[in-house]
Amino acid sequence: MSEPFEPKIVAFVCTYCTYAGADLAGTSRMKYASNVRIVRLPCTGRISPMFILKALQKGADGVLVSGCHPGDCHFAQGNYHARRRWTVFRALLAFTGIPEERIKFSWISAAEGAKFTELINGITGQIRTLGPFEQYQELQKVIETQSTY
């Protein structure tokens, strides 16, 4: 227990806005927490709730889902559809007791490198205080120790 807890955060981002925003943060030499692993997808409309569950199952302590601001979607409507889906999915997570504070949603445009940096640092700090997502990880451990595959 000598090493401090470093959370693993998976960020599902759309390639046209948030990924470009992250790129801007990089080219502007802004520093942000290295706990985040970015997964680039064509659109937030492509992000299935399965992705979020799978990330948590495979050991993520937090998940960020981020895309274009409403009205800015490259595919015109993808983020509107995604927003409805997240609303329902969040209610489902809350009802089944999966902590909502580990799953964050945001709009970050290609020009918001600074917002991306702040958000990543903020989320990493919050998840670090929350600690590891043991509820799920314990269940995963049961699988790994009991089954042969």
Partner: peptide, 16 residues
């Protein structure tokens, strides 16, 4: 179907 449609003014209070 509810998830195959949207309104621009759908609530989004949880989105950062």
């Amino acid at each position: 179907p509810v998830l195959a449609t949207f309104r621009q003014e759908d609530p989004e209070t949880f989105i950062l």
